[in-house]
Design a protein around this nucleic acid. Structure first.
Length: 318
DNA sequence: TTGTGTTTTATTGCCTCC
DNA sequence: GGAGGCAATAAAACACAA
């Protein structure tokens, strides 16, 4: 890099002690560089213009002298120059030596100036590109979040539907199992009739939590659909599992990447039969009818993670 | 006019490649 | 080791509101 040097007596310095200020190369780009580090000592600055000594630094800033003797102040390129440079940059944002020289001649600039302009232009382009990338990613994120919110709402709606259907089925089964059951005015069994030896939904959910991992992961097919939350998170963090009697929550072609966990009716039945056996309740009376079994594997307690203690963190919507 | 924020031109130091 | 690129930075030039 070419550099000229401005030499003047340092303020308050003794005779013979000079300050040298680095400045840019000569020509249109040469300028007095205030930020340059002062260098003590006697030195000639390469091919830079040799500057006369000043008796006082004040002289350095006198307007007439500044105009006549000092290197040009930093000048902005003319619109025409910028236009040509921009066009050249659009063609190719890197500058081969031949093109640099050619451009410099065309524009009446130093090759170094052309190189610097390209360097700075690349930096600006990079900054803009980062902004564009950020905007693009943000737009994608916003769209995904909106989609996610919409699906959550859907999720809630379907859940309500499942709960409602479960209750209706329960009532129906109760009525069928106890033909002589007293029905109150509302059509519900009266309070003194022991309707169920099976647990309340909340209790059942709690008991399900206690089931060991082997039970949960039994390979039986059909029955309650179990969706691993990890897989669900891969679909936008959505939790949803509806068994075979309810249409899949995920449209096949839209969520082909989302792997549903194995449906596990056998496990659900196994859970149920254990409870039934223990409680000696009515045979074949499943608390979770085929059409309504809904279980989840939690993300923070993935089934595999729970292998150690045999516990699983499954839960139901409530 | 002046203070302040932004843009542009240029330098410096470090790194990589040949 | 020299050339060239890049990040960081300085400083002039410019824009603009108060």
């Amino acid at each position: 890099m070419e550099s000229g040097r401005l030499i003047f007596n340092a303020p308050g310095s003794g005779a013979g002690q000079m300050l040298f200020l680095d400045c840019g190369a000569g020509g249109a780009g040469a300028m007095f560089h205030r930020g340059a580090r002062p260098v003590l000592g006697m030195e000639e600055g390469g091919r830079g213009v040799k500057r006369p000594f000043f008796t006082s630094p004040d002289e350095l800033f006198e307007e007439e002298y500044y105009d006549e003797q000092l290197p040009e102040k930093k000048r902005r390129l003319t619109p025409e120059q910028v236009h040509l440079l921009e066009r050249s940059f659009e063609e190719e944002n890197k500058l081969e030596p031949e093109r640099k020289t050619e451009l410099a001649q065309k524009l009446g600039l130093q090759p170094r100036q052309v190189a610097v302009w390209f360097q700075n232009r690349r930096a600006r382009w990079k900054t803009k590109q980062l902004e564009r990338d950020f905007d693009s990613l943000k737009a994608s994120f916003d769209a995904l979040r909106a989609d996610h919110d919409a699906l959550l709402q859907d999720n809630h709606r379907l859940h309500s539907q499942v709960v409602s259907l479960t209750e209706k089925l329960q009532e129906k089964e109760t009525a069928e199992r106890i033909p002589g059951a007293a029905i109150d005015a509302s059509g519900m069994p009266s309070a003194d009739v022991k309707v169920a030896e099976e647990p309340a939904p909340e209790e059942a959910a709690f008991e399900v939590q206690q089931v060991k991992a082997e039970d949960r992961l039994s390979t039986g097919s059909g029955g309650s659909a179990v969706v691993d939350a990890d897989a669900l998170l891969g679909c936008g963090g959505r939790l949803a599992a509806v068994d075979s009697s309810v249409e899949s929550y995920f449209p096949g072609d839209e969520y082909h990447d989302c792997v549903m966990g194995p449906t596990d009716h056998a496990a659900a039945r196994s859970i149920q039969s254990e409870e039934d056996d223990g409680a000696g309740s009515d045979e074949g009376c499943s608390y979770y009818p085929d059409g309504a079994s809904v279980l989840f594997a939690g993300h923070s307690h993935h089934a595999d993670d729970d292998e150690d203690d045999g516990q699983i963190s499954w839960w139901m919507w409530n």
